[in-house]
């Protein structure tokens, strides 16, 4: 904690995150929870998957988040004909210098917005996802490290939509958090209309956090304390997803890792120096939801509701997992 607060202490952390949230919220109306989760993911060094029907502001959220942070941002619009090199970059022969020169692709940025990621072919998808996992790109035998911090914010349409290539589960597992925007309520929708009469509010958005500050904030989140009890709690939930009869695929160890890391960021955002079981509870669905696969019986009940029923299953598991609470029982 002491090192983490060298440059960014709790108060300034709070101020800065407050600024980011307020800024993003001028663009995205009435979606506080989604915005907070997005920021949580960035602070926890995870990747964010925003999944929803078109036109609810997925890309807008990604852009607004990128605008609020003074960092390099790139945007890839995934299409079926997009090639892996369009993402990672390509070696081009420099005739002047008589050698191959690596032209860096859009993945070389602090924040990469991958729009409609499931419209690209699996080959291209995996090019991005491999770099996401490894933090580097290898082209022609040369390895190029990616920027740090590095966050991919990908959006995708629900798998039922036409012309989509669903992400394989192995790749979905690399996203720390999946959120779903959902339609705004009527008041929020009305406010959105008013605000966009004259200009796009996105243009008015200016960076409020420097890259350096973001790195410090991320470092601080790393230093958040996780007690053994809470770790045990997260593990219990993960174990339970593997045992549950309604689930065909349970949470991976990476999922548990992501859950705890995201919980740290959430605790920091909440102004706490330690993680609570409540953080785990709150993040269980966003972190685990996209990784689990319901068993045929549950899925067959209606695939349109699959994510809903998965959320129900996770809620049930969380509600049934005892919260570790000390030895006071016998005191």
């Amino acid at each position: 904690m002491a090192q983490a607060t060298d440059s960014v202490d709790f108060a300034s952390f709070h101020t800065l995150t407050g600024k980011i949230l307020r800024g993003v919220e001028t663009v995205i109306d009435g979606k506080r929870e989604a915005v907070e989760l997005a920021l949580t993911t960035v602070l926890a060094e995870g990747h964010l998957l925003i999944e929803d029907v078109p036109g609810v502001g997925k890309t807008m959220l990604a852009k607004a988040l990128a605008r609020s942070i003074d960092c390099t941002v790139s945007r890839i619009q995934f299409t079926p004909d997009l090639l892996p090199s369009d993402v990672t970059g390509v070696s081009v022969f420099n005739q002047g210098r008589g050698e191959f020169e690596f032209k860096r692709g859009p993945v070389f940025a602090n924040l990469v917005i991958g729009d409609e990621i499931n419209r690209a072919s699996p080959k291209t998808q995996s090019a991005l996802l491999e770099s996401m996992e490894e933090g580097q790109v290898s082209v022609d035998g040369v390895t190029y490290p990616l920027a740090s911090p590095f966050t991919v914010v990908a959006t995708q349409n629900p798998v039922e939509m036409e012309g989509t290539y669903p992400l394989p589960e192995a790749q979905r597992d690399r996203f720390m958090v999946r959120i779903s925007m959902g339609y705004p309520d009527d008041l929020a929708e009305l406010a959105m209309l008013k605000r966009r009469e004259l200009a796009s509010p996105l243009d008015a958005l200016t960076p409020v956090v420097s890259l350096r500050q973001l790195s410090d904030m991320i470092a601080m989140v790393r230093g958040i304390y996780v007690s053994e009890a809470v770790e045990q709690y997260a593990v219990s939930i993960a174990q339970e997803t593997r045992r549950d009869r309604e689930l065909r695929l349970g949470a991976s160890p990476r999922a548990t890792l992501h859950l705890v890391r995201a919980a740290k960021a959430r605790a920091a955002l909440d102004g706490r120096e330690f993680v609570l079981p409540d953080d785990i509870d709150a993040l269980a669905v966003p972190v685990l939801g996209h990784r689990l696969i319901a068993s045929a019986r549950v899925a067959g009940a209606g695939s349109a509701f699959q994510s809903n029923s998965l959320a129900d299953i996770i809620h049930r598991i969380v509600a049934a997992t005892p919260v570790p609470l000390g030895a006071g029982a016998s005191a």
Binding site: Y225, S227, A229, E273, F274, L276, P277, L325, G326
Partner: peptide, 11 residues
Amino acid sequence: VEREEYGKPHA
């Protein structure tokens, strides 16, 4: 309770 149970031990 939260501090005692989930916070840093010395805290």
